[in-house]
Design a binder for these strands. Structure first.
Lengths: 350, 350
DNA sequence: GTCATTTTGGTAACCGGTGTCAATATTGCC
DNA sequence: GGCAATATTGACACCGGTTACCAAAATGAC
């Protein structure tokens, strides 16, 4: 029972009450709150005792005003994938759990003209210590510049380093995509299709690079007809599936740049009575809930999104985190994604 | 171009700067900010002009301190469904868009012992104006009592009224489930299975009631073997599917209490080569992304979650919202869910 | 024109913390 | 013991707004 029950009407005790009770000045209490090192053990104990007795909780608004900084960090995201956002968010919360920080969430409308202005207004009004930028908006350099300009720290999350390690946490998507495609090749696949991500997305480019690398290693090439455009949406997967699976000699395996599009391709396969994985292997990317909710379960690449949230928070506000299991200076901020094998992949028929 | 570009180092202008420029006292500026009525048109214009020129943004921390209240509202959620949380969140943000409010997000671990204590600590530390409780934690009366005790307003979101209208926004799930089941019956289905939600969840109970109502109306009953337990997870859907579809006389249609379980049932049908919807119709609930990402697309019930977010915010903090399209006093806080027909439903065979 | 009443603007105190810097222990060293 | 160096603590202004209260100006009644 650490929580002291206060009568509903009873006012919250202030630092002055604590100071009076402990017989010290409010500044000393402030020092205890902020874990100043220049304190006698005896004084500290006395103050802590008084805090405990009164059930004192420092007023964050007052602190924020005095510190000229809010104890808030902002999570800026466009929402391509709700589960990703929430997992990341959970990671951030894991990291700031025992700190004084709280998390502000702010969806951003990537498309809109006023986007930059909106974010500026938001940051000016809330003045968070820092901002975390989730992809795809993390790829927007103007946003990073805006944070810089406003003196708001920032960390960008990406599928490959977007910035120096102080400002970026990323995963090694390219390598893992290559690994996944190598697995297809090892099974005997030679006609492998590709469904691209949206133009201009770094994540899409990385996945494509990984795919191409694996193909090149094996001396295979990608016919234009096997290379379908996409935009990370289910409907794009449907279109790509229609296109690739209507070819006279369709691919025996298709790598899709994300799970939703893979689900679309799989739907087309079902509609065309093409057996998955017997006649067609499919791989996606993200390990979204969809990956395990479709049948057969989708092989995919999981990026360590929650862990990236933890890492991002530690990178953003190391000085506000308790006992901060510090991020190694020499760390480059790259975390490992994993290729996950499920039932959607098998050797090609005969 | 409302945003004024400030040099990076340049300090944020304060109310004093505005007062000086406009040639009035800070009190007058404060009156303008807070839309006081006792002001000459001329004075107000002058102050607004100065604010515009300086790009002044009132410091929310200072206001919060002076007002003795934070301009924050908290969203407390356990995460059964990421998309739901995010959609609701979006609705809340729509509602508070032009206010001074910001949204704090706080996942809650329903299972953990310290849950109540954690939430208490959070609320005491952040002191938000109010809290929004998403299901399933909205069903926890202790949480509501805690808010009451701490003087934090709250609104509970539920599948049926959980509280008086001042504290609750809900949808009419029961009716719409009944409607969906009636649709099955109208198509000719007589052997209809049911996959329940988790025990103790209000939402699960409501969906079950709706299902039973429709059956009763048609003079049908639910054999025990057609009534499968579930917990809203995909794996529960798999188990339920295995059970129901292995019966000598399996149901021709199955209503699942949520989409994930419906996806599980559908996977089993695919594995057993049972044609959906030819030999088996399936209906889910939630209209989650999964519903449209599986094949065939799932008929389901969509609850107006984003709109509920808007409504919840309006109910929680009507006094902080601009021109608040006020919630009608006579409104009971119930919004309408919708039955959505997709490809997973058809008449029973022969 | 004078007095009472209503509007408006100004001053000072305050919200609950923190920074600065000086004042007061405490310790080390000769 | 005396003095310098160092460790602790406190006084006070200040963060950027708000309210309380008062004074000045404007308006209306006689």
């Amino acid at each position: 029972m650490t929580a002291q029950k206060k009568g509903a009407g009873g006012k919250q005790p202030t630092i002055n009450d604590v100071a009076a009770l402990a017989g010290v000045s409010k500044k000393t209490v402030s020092r205890v709150i902020n874990r100043s090192e220049f304190l006698t053990e005896k004084t500290r104990k006395a103050v802590e005792q008084a805090i405990e007795t009164l059930g004192f909780v420092p007023n964050p608004q007052a602190r924020a005003l005095a510190f000229r900084r809010n104890f808030l960090i902002a999570l800026l995201h466009d929402n391509p994938n709700a589960q990703t956002v929430l997992n990341f968010q959970q990671g951030v919360l894991d990291a700031i759990k025992d700190s004084d920080l709280a998390l502000l969430v702010r969806p951003v409308d990537r498309g809109s003209d006023g986007m930059l202005g909106d974010v500026r207004t938001f940051l000016e009004k809330q003045r968070p210590i820092g901002a975390l930028l989730l992809p795809p908006i993390s790829e927007n350099d103007d946003l990073a510049a805006l944070c810089e300009d406003l003196g708001v720290r920032y960390v960008r999350i990406g599928s490959a380093p977007l910035d120096d390690a102080k400002h970026c946490v990323s995963s090694n998507d390219r390598e893992v995509v290559a690994e996944a495609v190598r697995a297809l090749i090892a099974l005997g696949h030679r006609r492998i299709g590709f469904v691209r991500g949206p133009v201009g997305f770094r994540s899409a480019a990385e996945r494509e690079k990984g795919f191409m690398e694996a193909l090149a290693e094996a001396g295979l090439d990608l016919p234009a007809s096997f290379n379908a455009p996409g935009n990370y949406r289910y409907t794009a997967g449907i279109e790509a599936g229609e296109a690739l699976l209507s070819l006279p000699e369709p691919p025996t395996a298709i790598f899709c740049s994300n799970d939703e599009m893979a689900a679309g391709v799989m739907s087309v396969a079902h509609a065309k009575r093409i057996d998955v994985p017997g006649a067609l292997s499919i791989i996606g990317f993200d390990d979204s809930p969809t990956a395990t909710h479709i049948w057969p379960a989708l092989s995919t690449v999981r990026w360590p999104i929650r862990e990236m949230g933890v890492r991002a928070a530690k990178t953003l506000v190391p000085d506000f985190l308790p006992l901060a299991t510090k991020v190694d200076e020499r760390d480059n901020g790259v975390l490992n994604s994993t290729f996950i094998q499920r039932q959607s992949v098998a050797p090609p028929q005969s």
